[in-house]
Design a protein around this nucleic acid. Sequence first.
DNA 1: ATTATAGTAGGACGATTATCCTATTGCGAG
DNA 2: CTCGCAATAGGATAATCGTCCTACTATAAT
Lengths: 190, 190
Amino acid sequence: MNALSKGEKTRADIVECARQLFYEHGYDGTSFSAIVEASGLVRGNIYHYFKTKDDILQAVIELHLADYRALLAQWEKADDDPKMRLLAFVEMITGRKTELVKYGCPIGTLNSELAKDRRDLQQASRALFDLFRDWLAARFCELGKNEEADALALHLLGRAQGIAMIAHVYRDAKLLRRETDQLRDWISQL
Amino acid sequence: MNALSKGEKTRADIVECARQLFYEHGYDGTSFSAIVEASGLVRGNIYHYFKTKDDILQAVIELHLADYRALLAQWEKADDDPKMRLLAFVEMITGRKTELVKYGCPIGTLNSELAKDRRDLQQASRALFDLFRDWLAARFCELGKNEEADALALHLLGRAQGIAMIAHVYRDAKLLRRETDQLRDWISQL
DNA sequence: ATTATAGTAGGACGATTATCCTATTGCGAG
DNA sequence: CTCGCAATAGGATAATCGTCCTACTATAAT
């Protein structure tokens, strides 16, 4: 199952390498040479799979999208209760607190970096926000909040981003714990 | 009054130019040449005032600090009621919504950019967060929330950052308005 | 077995980066 | 007037950036 040809495997390796580097150092902070070294390949080989560094980012975004889509599907499967589903979103934050404190939110920091000067790329990475935005809104709809579902989704997204950002800037895991607890309360009281 | 020597004036011009460029394009996204062009000076002249680009950023941070310190003092002068003072903080967000949507929060985006790979510089820029953190905490103390003052300050700071971030990513001023209204409600009900 | 194509390999390229260097000019103190 | 330093000026430099190019090898189809 899931048999990847040699080439497909190499391509996937490049993308996975790039994803981690982009996450840890940002897109602009990651040079092509860094991807070359981290992947153990050579320049020419990587350019055989991707024409530009921007193309690599596109692939990284698609990988993120696929992974998060799978995660969301898993949450829907695990619970029927909309509130429990929303809580799963919050659990993700606490579950990944170590990386969040170290490198910030993978989606948030990427979008925020690209939003300044690379609006073309940011448009692509915004799809990651939209994925969560729509999924969360659907959960709020399940709770009967049809009118305000999207606003609530953006509110929750914003809260999560703010928490991740402050926790990242202050490298403070305790703050992250404290604020996610409040998020859980907020969901319970909806 | 406030007489600046020719050199001091030039230095201030450089810093002001750099501040705007760093805000619009980020620190890494602003080349030294960009500062040269925007200031109308020549490379050698700028290097006469600052040894490195990092030094320019330090000066920019200090300029921000001075400006925000003055702003906070102004808020304290304008109102004695701690809640009103907190509302002034929220007013700042709505008052600057156009730039926030375009370029994000000056403090937040800077810190978030530097937090990834330039921890030395981020430590300096974090002073900007600390300025607000301490000031907000002082206001919560005035409200009798001594124990939780710092936590409340970080909460409010995080909320503000989250709002600015989402509004920036989606270039959505309406969202910013909606969320700041909620912030105002939250403050009123404290 | 031959041919075509996918994959590997790595140096070359021009553009841009931050920084440095040496002149030259301007101005204020003595 | 002149001496000395601040300020202006702008080319030189080495490193790094993303990208391109050509050559070689492996594999799969005919």
